[in-house]
Design a binder for these strands. Sequence first.
RNA 1: GGGCCUGUAGCUCAGCCAGGUAGAGCAGUCGGCUCUUAACCGACUGGUCAUGGGUUCGAAUCCCACCAGGCCCGCCA
Length: 552
Amino acid sequence: MGGSRPPDNAYEGSAAGRLDVPSETKAVIGRGTWMDKVAHDVLVRERGLGRSLSMVRVESGLGASGIPHVGNLSDCVRAFGIKLALEVQGVRSEHIAFTDDMDGLRKVPAGLPDSVDLTKYIGHPVSRIPDPFSCHDSYGGHMGFLLLDAMDKLGVEYVHESATENYRRNRFARQVRAILARSEEIGAKIRELTGQEKYEEALPFFPICAECGRIYTTKAVSYDARTDGVGYRCEGAELRGRRLEGCGYEGEAKVTSGEGKMSWKVEFAARWSALDIRYEAYGKELADSVRINDWVSDEILGFPHPYHVKWELLLDRSGKKISKSEGGLVTPQTWFRYGTKESLVLLMFKRIVGARKVSIEEIPKYMDEFDWLEDVYHGKARVDSEGKLVKLKGLYEYVTYLKPPAAPSQHVPFRLLAELAGVAPKDAWQDYVVARLKAYRAISEPTPGLLLRIEMARNWATTAGGRPAPVKLTAEQRAAVDDLAGRLAAADSADYIQNQIFEVGRAHGMQPSEFFRLLYAILLGSEKGPRLGPYLYDMGVETAVKALSRKG
RNA sequence: GGGCCUGUAGCUCAGCCAGGUAGAGCAGUCGGCUCUUAACCGACUGGUCAUGGGUUCGAAUCCCACCAGGCCCGCCA
């Protein structure tokens, strides 16, 4: 494959990430989703390159420098989706999840336990920093675990690799030697492609300082091919606008024994080559790094770079990039409190192009959309065209990892569940919701799956929806509410309470609708709510009186 | 300096990645469910798909240009 030119020269800025389909293919590829399209394009390209298709590996990267959020996870889940799509096309495939745990800690994220003073570990490889949660062998181990745990919960298959392990076992020996031997050429190329001048001076390798243990403060200045040694000085660096002073140590690190790592500008290429990766997606913030890595892979390592898809970053609800170091991020673990795994996988599989806003508020939408997809798949919901039907069925099949259940589950709109669960009496919310659903004839008996959803809906409604703020009442309103509270003591049925509300309202010169709004404001913090008679009755007379008597 | 995303009904958005008669929810209007909020049911109203070109039998969708808002890169990994 030496001189063969890859069909898409991503480092020239052309086709990377685009989904052009050859115009002659009108037939549906695979199951008709973007993943099938990508898998198809990967295979077309691989055939053009003449590479073996006995195993087509895809890779995703796992950041280990902070609490992983949904955006980090989506790269892994989508890579798994591509693996499934490749298998649909009849080739064997494997998903490598690669943890970047040799990376240095750049900033202490907010919201971590203070059992470890992390500020003194700034610049250290995260696999050599103690775990502030004290449950894993290192900081990086903990963060990596959170991602692997989320994948396990989602049922995503992967083969885990860690940077630390790979360097220790000297898995990149051939690549690192080839890169360092031609570092001058690479430095010039980096400057040409990105304007970054740094690697005209320094080698693209970061030794871990033998003296102070930090990795980003060192500058590699020489390479001896006979000894595999890199000479370096610990001279400090700019990290996120702040100066990190070096310790001044000068020494030599072996590139073959885990005493340092390559810069990201060349490390991806080394990984692709060493692990034989044929596909890897990337976020747009890495576009420049990927262009250089493609060139390094092709020209320095003689390994035609993997096919790429570029995804837009996931955004928070205000449209900003999700940041690990700021609060309010949606972790996979948070999502699972409010939504099913299918809802999260749907979010990730639905589209690859375009930005996605990710926030807790969106969860009901994905819950309901999954149910709808399930109905479409099982022929219980109509779709306008045959083409759309094929694609939607395909999407459903991928969300269920190509093992769709024989029959749809019990469907109740999630917002209805949330509404009911949110207003339900605190000590009997599940019974209350189930009783209401039966009354609405939404269900006859709840399945375990539905009970789980009710719990998620309650979490969603009580946490994400917020609690009612105290209401300020006029003297007249207070009198009316107190009057009602007084009459509740004698209540022996839901209907009685319902009727009393009307009577009390009128007795105090209010329109019924006005009085109802007032009561909803006091009880629920909203203008609307469930039928009040049964609600107050279910709540229990004493509790109801207490709730109504609460002073604003 | 380079690149990306977003712009569709009053509001929030879907549809765009593989072109085939513009959609949903909410809001509004009218009606039904015998006082009633919720829920539900029926109907109605509402969009030159930011703008201008191009390709096509056919464009919200593909291409080019342009306007507006936002983001990423040009420290670093």
